[in-house]
Design a protein around this nucleic acid. Structure first.
Length: 490
RNA sequence: CGGGGCGUGGCGCAGUCCGGCUAGCGCGCAUGCUUUGGGAGCAUGAAGUCGGAGGUUCAAAUCCUCUCGCCCCGACCA
């Protein structure tokens, strides 16, 4: 039956929407325009914080729900810990406080009374959860302890960007405790894998999994692992991190258990998180000059039905729309835009800005022929589909869009990843279109800093695969220790 | 936090240099009629005190001081 689908070429008149700055003209502005026109978020009266609007929140909820299932499927339980962290707790792990000190928001008063001890608004929850774990864990039988929390955190950032860096953001933070270092390392890697799957299968955003350098690891961690994505302006985005905390927090929070040999042992911990930043990643990975393009797996709406209304045929078209809505509801996320105050053309642009994967046009001609016109957001292809075949055809296209978006993003990343063996080429790339630079590195932090000062590029990660050096350090020409990915990062 | 730019109905702007009557324009919004296969047309209407505070002046969106916020570029971060 799929052969009945007819392909029609679309006029590619550019500039359907003039209210979005083009990516090429000004990427930052494009990004903000898309967020506002797609009604994902608004600026608020409090500096550095945004209001996530219903459409944007639905998008986040879809990401969240998918990830929540994955977290539960891997044996974790959700819990909730306090927003506040007493200063004394936060200070226990020295490297940890030092890392977060510049961006902690402090509470100094309760009502008019000054507090005896300042209280931090959590920038992350290692401290408060470590403190709790020390009370929960007594025996090897209590391990592993696998906890996740969905929460808001506050980091007093100086420079903010919608979704990518706001002073308050929503996230998920997993915190686990294990009997052995090996188990902790396995957990860290397992959750990194979960993040990779979320990014690639659900958000259609290809990522490179790897380990952070000493310079870039989480304050207080033994190792930090990351999934790094490449945005369509050639900048990298850290999409998620997973930390092996070793025993650093266990020692300062005294998280001990009695092992099978009657001996006290410190636990080995992990923590891992992704945030509303992922929404920014989706926008910048897939969006175009007409607005958002959403992967079907997380799109608040899979399809929108736009009726084409004329006086004489109004009733039969609306009736048909109702009928289609009944057939599709519950099977896909679908809505009909029957508003009378907008023309069809206006609605086409509106729903394209919002990134709805598939549009279904129904006019009198279609009713007569028992068909509809299906239009894909990703490539604007118009397909005439017989009514009785509609659900199949939509589902087929949704799957195709989901995999197509991933492939397109992957191709973009491949085209914008440069394997480089001399620093001149490195500088040229960073001064031009940017992208990932895959090059040998000597392993020294000083050398890494110098590269950053000269080019703005940082080492995004030492990849899990293909990290073996193939020559001398791209900058200092000493013996290569790893082959790593460099990029300018958000 | 340093450098630069900008704050005028919901949004985008003009007016500011060179103070002067009721602060304009486009979009949007409301109402009505005509429309509707890629952001329709006409008519009528509502809405701003010029980011905020203080000052100079007969008179301030406009000049001065302070302050708050946003954007861009640098130093730091999910």
């Amino acid at each position: 039956m799929a052969t009945e689908a007819l392909l029609i070429m679309t006029k590619q008149d550019d500039g359907f929407v003039k209210e979005i700055t083009s990516k090429e003209e000004d990427f930052s502005r494009w990004y903000v325009d898309v967020i506002r026109k797609a009604e994902l978020a608004d600026y608020s009266s409090i500096k550095g914080c945004m209001v996530i609007k219903p459409y944007g929140y639905e998008l986040w909820e879809n990401i969240k729900n998918d990830l929540d299932n994955k977290i539960k499927d891997t044996g974790h339980k959700n819990a909730y810990f306090p927003l506040f962290v007493p200063e004394s707790l936060l200070k226990k792990e020295a490297e940890h406080v030092e890392g977060f000190a510049p961006e902690v928001a402090w509470i100094t008063h309760g009502g008019d009374d000054e507090l005896e001890e300042r209280i931090a608004i959590r920038p992350t929850s290692e401290a408060i959860i470590g403190d709790t774990f020390s009370q929960w864990i007594e025996s090897w039988r209590d391990l592993p302890l696998l906890i996740n929390q969905w929460a808001n955190v506050v980091r007093w950032e100086k420079v903010t960007r919608l979704f990518l860096r706001t002073r308050e953001f929503l996230w998920q933070e997993g915190h686990t405790a294990h009997a052995t270092q090996q188990e902790a390392e396995e957990e860290t890697m397992k959750m990194l894998g979960v993040y990779q799957e979320l990014c690639e299968k659900v958000l259609a955003m290809p990522v490179i999994p790897g380990r952070k350098t000493e310079n870039q690891k989480f304050p207080g961690a033994l190792h930090t692992y990351t999934v790094e994505a490449l945005m369509s302006n050639g900048w990298a985005l850290q999409a998620g991190t997973s930390h092996n905390l070793g025993q650093h927090f266990a020692r300062v929070f005294d998280i001990q258990y009695l092992d099978q040999n009657q001996e006290q042992q410190y636990v080995w911990q992990t923590s891992w998180g992704v945030s509303t930043r992922l929404v920014g990643g989706v926008i910048m990975t897939h969006g175009d000059d007409s607005g958002l393009i959403l992967p079907p797996a997380i799109a608040p709406l899979h399809a929108v039905i736009v009726p084409i209304l004329f006086d004489k045929t109004r009733d039969i078209v609306l009736e048909k729309v109702d009928q289609l809505l009944n057939t599709l509801s519950g099977k896909i996320r679908v809505e009909a835009d029957t508003r009378d105050e907008y023309t069809p053309g206006w609605k086409f642009n509106e729903w394209e800005m919002k990134g709805v994967p598939v549009r279904i046009e129904v006019g009198p001609r279609d009713v007569k022929n028992q068909q509809v016109v299906l239009v894909r957001r990703d490539n604007r292809e118009k397909i005439i589909v017989k009514e009785n075949n509609l659900l199949d055809e939509i589902q087929k296209n949704l799957e195709d869009i989901q995999s197509g978006l991933f492939q397109k993003a992957l191709d973009f990343r491949t085209e914008n990843t440069y394997e480089v063996d001399n620093f001149k080429d490195f500088e040229d790339i960073m001064a031009g279109g940017r992208g990932f630079i895959y090059a040998n590195w000597c392993g020294s932090s000083e050398c890494e800093d110098e590269v950053q000062n000269l080019t703005k590029a940082t080492i995004r990660c030492i990849p899990l695969e293909g990290y073996k050096p193939t020559g001398e350090c791209v900058h200092c020409s000493k013996e290569g220790k790893y082959k790593v990915y460099f990029a300018k990062a958000y």
